[in-house]
């Protein structure tokens, strides 16, 4: 079972490594969107510090959505999704593996870039640390929930827009707790409450999302 999970993850990482252009798009998008805000709003430090956490988080959500459209679409087009579904393991395991791979490929780079972008907004060191921590707990949730949307919109025309409408509402709690944790640190009220809630959302997503994705995949492939 674990072997299948790692096989799926290794496969997606290998394929992403062969197509670095696709992979870089979402990362550049993240950097561009967050960099545009200070330029558009002006260099008022207090203002930037206030909006910083929210902007970084919203940009992370959008960057994640950008890469989700391809989570299953390429495999669906070339028929390898059918082969994956017919593999002698549970389809939920496949969905979990795909989500983990998506997080490793798209989520971890966001974590690494985020502190640099946080400095643009004048966030202090402790807030930067909480920002990275909140992203570390929150971005796997984005990949897991996004997998449901990607599976549901598979093979539909205009799936890219539909996935945004389907999934963004589900991302709201993640955004509130994630940005809230950083805000809490800035305001001196602490981040523990928000981070715990974010952790609870992650546990829920790990337990539930792969099953729903697997069901959605079977419906979409049929």
């Amino acid at each position: 079972m674990l072997r299948f999970l790692t096989a799926v993850i290794r496969r997606d990482i290998l394929l992403a490594a062969r197509r670095r252009g696709d992979w870089l798009t979402a990362q550049f998008f993240f950097v561009m969107v967050t960099s545009l805000f200070p330029l558009g709003i002006g260099p008022e430090p207090a203002m930037l510090r206030t909006i910083g956490p929210g902007v970084v988080w919203v940009a992370a959500l959008l960057a994640c959505l950008l890469s989700l459209g391809r989570l299953y679409a390429d495999d669906h087009r070339d028929g390898s999704l059918e082969q994956l579904l017919l593999a002698p393991y549970s389809n939920a395991l496949l969905a979990l593996g795909k989500a983990i791979a998506h997080w490793i490929i798209n989520g971890i780079p966001l974590l690494l870039i985020a502190p640099v972008l946080g400095i643009q907004f004048g966030l202090p060191a402790d807030a930067l640390a909480v920002l990275v921590l909140s992203l570390a707990i929150g971005t796997p949730v984005l990949s897991l929930l996004g997998g449901i949307g990607a599976a549901l919109t598979l093979g539909l025309r205009g799936g890219g827009v539909l996935i945004t409408l389907l999934i963004l509402p589900l991302y709201v709690p993640v955004l509130i707790f994630g940005a809230g944790a950083v805000d809490g640190t800035l305001a001196g009220t602490g981040a523990e409450a928000h981070l715990s809630l974010l952790g609870a959302v992650l546990v829920m997503a790990v337990l539930v999302a792969p099953w729903i994705s697997a069901l959605a995949l079977r419906v979409s492939v049929e």
């Binding site: 096989a7 062969r18 070339d78 059918e82």
Partner: peptide, 29 residues
């Protein structure tokens, strides 16, 4: 116990034939 080859081939364009076979074996355990 069952192997299926459908209309579309289910092979990845970015990989060589041998890598494709390796991938399939990996996923089939």
């Amino acid at each position: 116990e069952m192997a299926y080859v459908g209309h579309v081939n289910g092979i990845k364009d970015d990989l060589t034939p041998l890598e494709n076979l390796r991938l399939a074996a990996d996923l089939g355990g």
